[in-house]
Each structure stands twice: as structure tokens, then as C-alpha cells.
Design a binder for these strands. Structure first.
Length: 291
DNA sequence: AAAGCTCACGCACGTAGAGA
DNA sequence: TCTCTACGTGCGTGAGCTTT
């Protein structure tokens, strides 16, 4: 079977699946649907509030999910330095006012700023939309993997893990006697067993849109550690467990990523597999699963 | 039961510096 | 000058636990 390194020798981008979002300016239509109402609501609250701390208190009383968007607007108009996580905590409102209130822009200024904008404010909606699909590409990757696996091997093997959002599979809770060898906790995205429960594959999924090298450098070491630990475990416990790295996205072709993953796979001596979605049918074979 | 809240996930984007 | 490594900040969503 060709190695992951071999796939990289000739136009690696043909093995990549690129998940595209909506492009500019098309997404302005979508953004408008999402943010027009909260932006107008912000204007209403702006008129009724007595000062900018009061504005925040009023926002906090709004129901979800609109409240989150109002807070995002508040953050941009009034207080850039208040972390979103703090704004989300309703019980911490007074704390936020105490800690950050001195730097809130005054209500008069915010009103002027708000009034100076066209309504609806497409610029702000576009800025807000930039973050709307955070994380979704990673979820898309695992979702497609699970679908493929169920269709291909669903009758013969058991697969577990969060299909999109959700908790990872904690390997130390699943792998027999893992704790007697290692103290580390290893969360996995994919866990495949025979129907009798014999562990076959621990898998880790990751999608890289961009900045392959820059984002990956810290993880290369972590991936290496996970693979080594799991291979050691499998050998000691006498279990046919293997390691899968499901990686995809254009970022994979940037920098040293491909080489790093090729090296990771090579170190596994056949017991570590690095795959993109497009490689699955020829690489994630039943022969490998049972090896 | 509903609302509040925390946590896991991991993408987007910026600068600095070394080396080719 | 360009590429790559290294480091860092910003951010929203959904699951599911906790509190009311």
C-alpha cells in the first residue's frame, strides 16, 4: 500500500477535500437575516438606557439567543476589552461593570456612533458573520468520516465518538487496563471496536483550512506522543489497537505539514495511518483494521 | 422544565525572527 | 526578499451539566 508520503509526491491537493463556506458578498444576505433584528433591538435599547452600564444590564435581561448577539454588538460599540465569556455570564454583570465600566464608551457617544451608521449596517453584519461558522469545518470532517464508516463497515464494526459537536471518547476509560500502564488522559474523536468490544482503532480528526504549519507545529509533538503511547499500550496489553489520524483541508499542503504527517505514519510501522477523506476507501481497509 | 453556565472544539489572523 | 517556524490573541457554537 502506498504511504501517506507517496500521496504527497504528485499534486497533494488532489487528495484534499475543501469545505467552502458562502463567499463575499453572497453571505451578506445570510448575515442580514441573522443580525438585522438584534442590531435594530440594540438601537431600541440604546434609546431607553440611562448610561452604558445600564445598557449592559438591559441586554442581560433579554432572552436567548438574541442576547448573545446583543452582547457581541455591545462589545464592539461600547467595550472592546470585556471578554465575550464575561459578558455571557449573567451573574457577573456587576463584576464586569466594576472591572471594565470605567472604559465603557459613554452612552452619548455610542448613540452618536450608532446614528452615524447606515441602517441596516452591512459592515457590522459582515464583521459579525466572519465568526458564524467557527468550528463547523472540523465537525463536517468527522460527520463525513462517520457516514463513510457506517456505510462501509457499519455492519461489521462498532464506531463511537461525537459525530459533530460533543464529548470526545476518553480512551483511558475504554481501553482495558490502560490505567495500569499510563496515567495520561487521551481524548479521541473516533473509537472503533469489533462487535465483541476488542479495540481496533483510536482516531484523531483535524481540519486545517489555512496556516497549516503555523497551527500545527505544537500539535505535531502531541500527535507523536499520542501515537507512541497508544502503540506502547497495544503492544503491552496485546491488543490489536491502531492509530488513525484523519486530517484534511488545504492547510495540509502548506509548510511542513505533509512531511510531518508522513513521518508520523512511518514511525508507526503500519500501525499508524494518516488519511484524508479521499484516501479512506483505498487505505482504511478491513485488512488494516484487522492487522 | 427552563434558564444559566461551563467546557470542548478548533478556525482566523497577526508579528517577529531565523535562514535560505 | 521570501519562506518557514514559533508564538500569541481573538472568537462563536453546541452539548450537556447545574441551578432555579
Amino acid at each position: 500500500m502506498p504511504s501517506f508520503a507517496d500521496y504527497g509526491k504528485n499534486n497533494p491537493s488532489q487528495w484534499i477535500t475543501a469545505f467552502e463556506g458562502t463567499r463575499y458578498p453572497d453571505y451578506l444576505t445570510v448575515a442580514r437575516k441573522m443580525y438585522e433584528a438584534p442590531l435594530a433591538e440594540f438601537g431600541v435599547l440604546l434609546n431607553t438606557a440611562t448610561d452604558s452600564a445600564d445598557l449592559l444590564r438591559r441586554i442581560v435581561r433579554e432572552p436567548l439567543p438574541g442576547r448573545i448577539q446583543l452582547m457581541r454588538i455591545f462589545r464592539r460599540y461600547v467595550s472592546q476589552k470585556t471578554p465575550v465569556e464575561m459578558l455571557k455570564k449573567i451573574s457577573k454583570v456587576e463584576e464586569v461593570v466594576t472591572n471594565y465600566g470605567a472604559d465603557f464608551r459613554s452612552l452619548a457617544e455610542v448613540r452618536l456612533a450608532y446614528a452615524s451608521r447606515p441602517h441596516p449596517d452591512e459592515a457590522l453584519m459582515a464583521v459579525m458573520y466572519e465568526h458564524a461558522d467557527r468550528g463547523s469545518k472540523g465537525y463536517e470532517l468527522t460527520a463525513r468520516f462517520f457516514k463513510w464508516f457506517e456505510e462501509t463497515y457499519g455492519a461489521r464494526y462498532q464506531i463511537d465518538g461525537p459525530v459533530r459537536a460533543g464529548k470526545d471518547v476518553m480512551l483511558h476509560e475504554r481501553l482495558p487496563h490502560f490505567r495500569s500502564f499510563f496515567s495520561s488522559n487521551i481524548p479521541a474523536d473516533i473509537y472503533i471496536t469489533r462487535t465483541d468490544g476488542t479495540p481496533l482503532v483510536a482516531g484523531f480528526a483535524r481540519y486545517d483550512s489555512d496556516r497549516g504549519g503555523a497551527q500545527e507545529d505544537d500539535r505535531t509533538g502531541q500527535n507523536h506522543d499520542k501515537a507512541t503511547t497508544l502503540q506502547n499500550y497495544a503492544a503491552r496489553a496485546g491488543i490489536p489497537l491502531k492509530v488513525l489520524f484523519l486530517n484534511d483541508g488545504p492547510g495540509l499542503t502548506l509548510g511542513s505539514m505533509w512531511r510531518d504527517y508522513a513521518a508520523l505514519e512511518a514511525e508507526g510501522n503500519g500501525r499508524t495511518l494518516v488519511c484524508t477523506l479521499k484516501m479512506l476507501s483505498e487505505r482504511l481497509t478491513s485488512q488494516w483494521l484487522e492487522s
